[in-house]
Write a protein that binds this DNA or RNA. Structure first.
Lengths: 197, 197
DNA sequence: TATTAAATTAGATAATCATCTAATTAGTAT
DNA sequence: ATACTAATTAGATGATTATCTAATTTAATA
């Protein structure tokens, strides 16, 4: 059952000791003893938590001699996070028709942008915010690399709070950043989690 | 404390009844009685869960007459999911400049590849693994379609465990597979979530 | 074979928590 | 005031679970 797997994923992460184990493992694999020592807990407790993390597929194990090395299962942690959100946001499957959707977009842009093109305020309602952000992001060139400074300047044309908006660009997957260089994500990624089936 | 908030977020989602409440709320707001009825639980139980969800900022409430309507707090649910992943994957939080990053890449390639070009071992640390995989995948031709056999042969030039590496190519979105035919994904897709702040 | 090192299992304890029923509070409308 | 409806609080119960110590298992080596 779908629901049960999601519950188990969150149970696995709903404990400070297990989170600290995962955090330690982000720096590379570690064996049980090392974990016990770093966390000041007994070895059996490590085994206990490792079992929970393993059941949820959040770690992998590798045996060498009689030592077991644990490592993050980065891929599954992400997968489950995504699956959770898809589940929670699925909206009973009601979809808007194309023209209806266009009307909503037009209305949001009318309400949140002035005639000179500047953004009056950042919408707080989720979907409206996405529409407004998308409206901005469409003015950027696909494939072009932007420095952080350029992005800031670009945003300031529309709204003074460039830091917030820049962050939203990243968070909502409109852009990605690597080493201070920003680039537009392909449009396919702008589709947001709640729309993902 | 950072850790405690993340634990609470996951605790809030680590219960089937609460997930079902959130699922129902994805279709729009609902009051306590309606939830109790739909879920076949008592009203006090709804209150109990609502309190937990409220503490984790996953829902909002609105009072009308003596009826309380609950709604998803879409934004915070996502925020916390992202924050969790950032936390788990943070690798001590060090961020790198462009040239520094190039150094790391060079070092990883130096350490994990022999002079004849073969991979000594698959890095277990996530970022290093990505660098090594990328290094391999760059030798493939964009746009060309490969059979599974061809991919295996290609990988075997570098490492005998072609099955694992082939799987990693897919999992990390370096390649795309359909009906046994493999093709390189566009570079934009190679960027991974842990880079998002 | 005996020894050592690491991990797991068994079993106990204390804490947390999901759920219920019964009683109470809050807010409207007669 | 009185009655009605929705929600909350109180308190009890049973289940789950995080942690420990002690005992056992696994694998390697002297």
């Amino acid at each position: 059952m779908q629901l049960e797997k999601i519950v188990n994923y969150h149970k696995a992460l709903a404990d400070p000791t297990r989170l600290r184990i995962l955090l330690l493992l982000s720096e590379g694999e570690m064996n049980g003893q090392a974990l016990a020592e770093k966390l000041n807990i007994s070895q059996p407790t490590v085994t206990h938590h490792a079992a929970k993390l393993r059941e949820a597929a959040l770690i992998t194990e590798r045996r060498e001699k009689n030592t077991v090395y644990f490592a993050q299962n980065h891929y599954f942690i992400q997968q489950h996070a995504q699956a959770s959100l898809n589940f929670i946001f699925k909206e009973g499957g009601k979809e808007m028709s194309e023209p209806e959707n266009e009307n909503v977009k037009a209305a949001v842009i009318r309400n949140f942008f002035a005639k000179d093109g500047r953004m009056r305020q950042i919408p707080s309602q989720y979907k409206k915010k996405l529409i407004a952000l998308e409206h901005l992001v469409e003015q950027l060139e696909p494939g072009r690399k932007y420095s952080e400074k350029e992005i800031n300047e670009f945003i300031k044309q529309y709204h003074e709070d460039y830091a917030t908006i820049r962050r939203e660009f990243i968070m909502h997957q409109f852009m990605y950043r690597e080493d201070g260089i920003y680039e537009l994500n392909p449009r396919e990624l702008w589709t947001h989690w709640e729309n993902v089936k």
